[in-house]
Write a protein that binds this DNA or RNA. Structure first.
Length: 160
DNA sequence: ATTTACAATATGA
DNA sequence: TCATATTGTAAAT
C-alpha cells in the first residue's frame, strides 16, 4: 500500500493505493501531512489522477465522471454489498439506513447498515454521507458530522 | 461459542 | 419527547 496526498481547498486528503486500486481515503488531519506522490506505480499514478479529480468534483457537490477502481477487499461480503448500494445514490439524493437494508433484501438490518457505513474505507467516493436516518436527520459520520453537513449542503440535499 | 457494541427504528406512555 | 424492545452484523472475549 502506498500513500499519496490529494490537496484540495478543504485540506489535504490522503489516498492509499493497493495493487488492486484505491483502498482507503482519509480526511485532512489537522496538521502535518503531505505524503509524496512518488513511489507509485504507473498504474497507481493514473488512479491517483482520477481519484483526485473525483474528490474535487464531489467536494463541489457534483457527481464524478469517472472513478478509479476501488479495492474493497478489506470488507466483508455484507459490507461490500452495502457499499455497492451506496454508489447508486447520485449527488443531491439521500437514502435512509432502513431503505438501504430493504434494498439488500434484509429489512431490519438498518443498524447493520450504519455499521457498514462507518466501516467504509473510502468516504466521498463511496457516498456514505448521503445516508440519513428515517426522519431525515443526520445519523452519524466517521469523519465528523461537520463534514457530513458540509457535503450535503454543497449538493443541496434536503436535511431536517 | 458467547457476548458486546453500534452512524437504527417502531412502538407505547 | 423519552424509554424500551427488537433487530443484523462484526469484533472482541
Amino acid at each position: 500500500m502506498t500513500a499519496a496526498s490529494i490537496p484540495t481547498s478543504d485540506g489535504v486528503f490522503t489516498a492509499w493505493f493497493s495493487d488492486r486500486g484505491l483502498a482507503r481515503l482519509e480526511f485532512p488531519t489537522g496538521r502535518l501531512e503531505i505524503m509524496p506522490v512518488t513511489g507509485l506505480t504507473r498504474r497507481q499514478q493514473r488512479w491517483w489522477r482520477i481519484a483526485t479529480d473525483a474528490v474535487l468534483t464531489v467536494l463541489k457537490g457534483e457527481d464524478p465522471h469517472e472513478l478509479p477502481p476501488l479495492d474493497v477487499s478489506t470488507g466483508t461480503e455484507f459490507q461490500q454489498s452495502v457499499w455497492e448500494e451506496l454508489c447508486r445514490i447520485g449527488a443531491g439524493q439521500t437514502r435512509g439506513y432502513g431503505e438501504i437494508a430493504r434494498a439488500l433484501g434484509r429489512p431490519g438490518a438498518s443498524r447493520a447498515v450504519g455499521q457498514a457505513c462507518g466501516a467504509n474505507p473510502i468516504p466521498l467516493l463511496i457516498p456514505c454521507h448521503r445516508v440519513l436516518a428515517a426522519d431525515r436527520k443526520l445519523g452519524g459520520f466517521s469523519g465528523g458530522l461537520t463534514w457530513k453537513r458540509r457535503l450535503l449542503a454543497r449538493e443541496r440535499a434536503a436535511v431536517a
